[in-house]
Write a protein that binds this DNA or RNA. Structure first.
Lengths: 215, 215, 215, 215
DNA sequence: GATGAATGAGGCTTCATTCAT
DNA sequence: CATGAATGAAGCCTCATTCAT
């Protein structure tokens, strides 16, 4: 993640290209961004892009892996380190997602949804590796959410299938990204977050500090 | 919907092109299909496509409208005509979605997810009309689902916010399509269906005929 | 051959592109000419080239076929129509080859050799069809030369194997083109012509009218 | 020729690159081989190639010189040392050429013809030095063949122009390579060898050990 | 009115070559 | 000195779109 810390110049260049492409693909999709634009944005020559990636699709795969790593590390692992109560963890995850989207929305007026799903839907048929990579990431997401579910059931002394609930939470998370993007409204993320907290039996956990102050 | 029934030849040709493009865009995305391929598949000359649609994006918009109409009519309106109990309606909606995906999966080995979301994510940034059209459709979907929620709450004598529940059901439906496609596994649709039925308080409603045999 | 006479506009365009490319590939080789240059020289858009040829190599194959047809028709069939004595036919063939090369040499200072062999050597490993097409043409050339050999043996009442002699004449013809090009000297064609006429037993047949006037 | 014997490491590296490139250019042509591939095959860094050669074309020129040296030394000088009778010398030359091609054909299924002519035809227009270098080599080849012709005429007590015959033999040799490559059939070399031996008046000299058994 | 033919713009990719360590 | 890294210039090809019959 920390590009500066990479040992060789080549690895730094590669990581810089991936991070740049991730931004562009997220905002304008795979087909909406040319390799020229990636190279320009990354301030490298186009041939340098091809030194590190076999082709544009290979770059997309690297971007999906990059996004997957961020998702798992920044959204889940860090949250799990920071909080231990399941409702706090789930609230934090939605809070982070909401804040990220709200910031971008304030900046651009748009909501870009989940960058992995975007790429996987656009390229999945053409490039099964991308779909599979995304699937692998979401299997891990599901495991994190199942842990939250398990802990929540335990803390409430309730019985239930944590794996099934984990899957539902994961699907609801997909829906949160999709409906936020389709409606261009980041607050859909909060709706989903509340529903998710209700699903694990903690309906009143706040996600934002003063969130219910709006009419 | 019934192309044969349209009054003029022009309308039939146009509808035929839309239906053909809808299939192709669904399976191979907008950028994965050329206008040539649409014309070939529809067995019309390419210039004929441009007689009915200003450009390829205009065709995509027509496809989203077409898909929206099918969704609302075939999936929701028809289901509401056929069933009146909320749990039966919800089960039928997921049953239809599952069956459609399972058939395509058996045929192609792939799962293509929601065709509107696919196009909207691919073109949304470029073409706000498409995103807005999809949003409009899902607002109606949400209304149907809120009706189901309202009826379910009423039939159970339970209190709760049907609109909020409708939104959750709609987001879960998005998640069902997304995770089915990402995992290439239509049975994710059933997982979501069960969760949805549980959400409206009818957890034991079967979606398929003999699926409720617990081990 | 007569482009004007082709029935459809498309066929005329295609034939015009082939003829243009044949010139360019002959003078500057396959890799020395870009598709842009072919399109410019033919005064059509580059995409028009790709309407008629799958790719640049497919164009090269068409050029080899075109050159083969010219060789067989203009050099051999026409000569066989015009003359009946074997020595006259052989002399005419070398005369035509010499004159063509001498004219180009006077014009450009260069000698370009056999256009089929040029393309076949440049692309043969990559594209067996081209090598095979050229081989097919030279099998027919060999048959024409075997006929000359047979007639020559018969007219001299000599015995010998016309097929073997035909092959030698064909190989000598290859050598004539090669050594003319390597030395940039069209008169090597005359050297080979004289040797060929000697091989069929008519060593004193003149190829050019006053050719031995030079010191 | 013997790379190991070269005095300095630089000379050895250079010679090694040339020999490697000669193989690659022979089999896949000049434009079919990238400098990267040459460097990889020679197991040197690409910049090392540019240390020894101004550019890729300069490397090609070195390759032609290398091939010319081999041709003159291995094929002609060595043969002239080994045999003194003209028919033996000519037979040996074709034997060597045939054996080399037959071995490669057995190995790869392909016949690659004369490596100098290949490069000269591909680059001749672009790089006159290459054409001229090849021409220089073939002038020497022609001289060797004229010596054979002269000796053959003398040993048969026949009169005739040895220079002219030498040129014919040289052209026939070109034809032998060309038609072998175009037909992908090394035995064309033997056909030409027999014709060459007939031309110098020794038609029954065998090229291979047991090939003269007539049916 | 429908279609074969044509086009301009731009995308992806590769290559020979040079730089900087 | 040798090498990993970088680059500019093209080349091939495709696509959405329009023209002309």
């Amino acid at each position: 993640m920390d590009i500066e810390a990479l040992p060789t110049k080549g690895e730094r260049t590669r990581a810089h290209i991936v991070a740049t492409a991730a931004q562009l693909f997220w905002r304008r999709n795979f087909h909406g961004v040319s390799v020229d634009q990636v190279a320009d944005a990354a301030e490298v020559n186009k041939a340098t892009v091809y030194r590190y990636f076999a082709d544009k699709r290979d770059l997309a795969l690297a971007v999906v892996k990059f996004n997957g790593a961020i998702t798992l590390e920044v959204f889940f692992a860090a949250t799990f380190d920071k909080y231990s109560a399941p409702q706090d963890r789930l609230a934090e995850i939605y809070r982070l997602a909401y804040q990220a989207h709200a910031a971008i929305h304030a900046d651009t007026g748009d909501v870009f949804g989940c960058p992995m799903v975007g790429l996987a839907l656009e390229l999945g048929q053409d490039m099964p590796e991308i779909r599979e990579e995304a699937d692998r990431v979401f299997t891990q997401v599901e495991a994190y959410l199942a842990t939250i579910a398990r802990d929540a059931l335990a803390s409430r002394g309730a019985s239930g299938d944590a794996e099934t609930l984990g899957r539902t939470l994961m699907q609801l998370q997909h829906g949160a990204f999709a409906s936020s993007r389709l409606s261009a409204d980041p607050s859909r993320m909060l709706d989903a977050g509340k529903a998710a907290l209700a699903l694990i039996g903690f309906p009143d956990t706040p996600i934002l500090e003063k969130e219910d102050s709006r009419p």
